Amino acid sequence: MLKLPKPPALLVSLGRRLPPAFLSLHFTAGLLVARHLNWLLPPAELEGKRFAIDVTDLGLRCLFCCRHGSFRPSWDAQADLELSASAADFFSLLQGEMDADTLFFQRRLKISGDTELGLMVKNWLDATERPAWLRHRYLSD
């Protein structure tokens, strides 16, 4: 599992001051690239749902929604589903090294909001095939 050093306080302070709308634009751009490359295709059940991703150790919060089968930044602070974890834990999920259940039961992933939606997103992400470059371990434990 990837172990990252604790980020400097200055970086965390900067992360907390960045407006979520600014971060959401960049985060959503990444989701759109993944969608266009057929790496991350949202199921129809996500239509109209709003999401928040909190990267706790960096003080970052991204808000987005699914509209017309695509990801869009959200300007609404309310989310139907919110996921909170450290950057290293999100990266482990992304690579498929850790699953959401393990992180949740270890209290490293916090999920709030619509629990049925959370379960659907978890199952969707678990079933999503990761690209080979993402599965490759560039960093050692």
Score class of each variant (00 low, 15 high):
Met1Phe: 11
Leu2Ala: 07
Leu2Ser: 01
Lys3Pro: 00
Lys3Ile: 00
Leu4Tyr: 13
Leu4Cys: 11
Lys6Tyr: 12
Pro7Gln: 01
Pro8Cys: 05
Ala9Cys: 06
Arg16Glu: 00
Pro19Thr: 11
Pro19Tyr: 07
Ala21Met: 10
Ala21Phe: 10
Phe22Asn: 13
Leu23Ile: 15
Leu23Glu: 12
Ser24Gly: 03
Leu25Ser: 12
Leu25Met: 10
Leu25Gly: 12
His26Trp: 13
Leu31Tyr: 07
Leu32Trp: 09
Val33Trp: 10
Val33Tyr: 06
Arg35Met: 12
His36Pro: 10
Trp39Lys: 14
Pro43Cys: 03
Ala44Leu: 04
Glu45Trp: 09
Glu47Pro: 11
Gly48Cys: 08
Phe51Tyr: 02
Ile53Glu: 05
Ile53Tyr: 00
Asp57Gln: 03
Asp57Asn: 03
Leu58Tyr: 03
Leu63Cys: 02
Leu63Gly: 03
Arg67Ser: 14
Arg67Trp: 12
Ser70Asn: 05
Ser70Pro: 01
Phe71Met: 10
Phe71Trp: 08
Arg72Gly: 09
Ser74Gln: 13
Trp75Ser: 15
Asp76Met: 01
Ala77Leu: 15
Ala77Cys: 12
Leu83Asn: 01
Leu83Ser: 01
Leu83Arg: 01
Ser84Ile: 00
Ser84Asp: 02
Ser86Gln: 03
Ala87Asn: 11
Phe91Gly: 06
Ser92Tyr: 01
Gly96Ile: 00
Glu97Tyr: 14
Met98Val: 14
Thr102Trp: 11
Phe104Ile: 04
Arg108Met: 03
Ser112Pro: 09
Gly113Ala: 04
Gly113Asn: 00
Asp114Asn: 02
Glu116Trp: 01
Glu116Leu: 08
Gly118Leu: 15
Gly118Ile: 13
Gly118Lys: 15
Leu119Arg: 15
Met120Tyr: 13
Lys122Gly: 05
Trp124Ala: 02
Trp124Asp: 01
Trp124Gln: 03
Asp126Lys: 15
Ala127Tyr: 11
Ala127Pro: 02
Thr128Val: 11
Glu129Tyr: 11
Arg130Ala: 04
Arg130Trp: 08
Ala132Cys: 05
Trp133Thr: 07
Leu139Gln: 07
Ser140Gly: 11
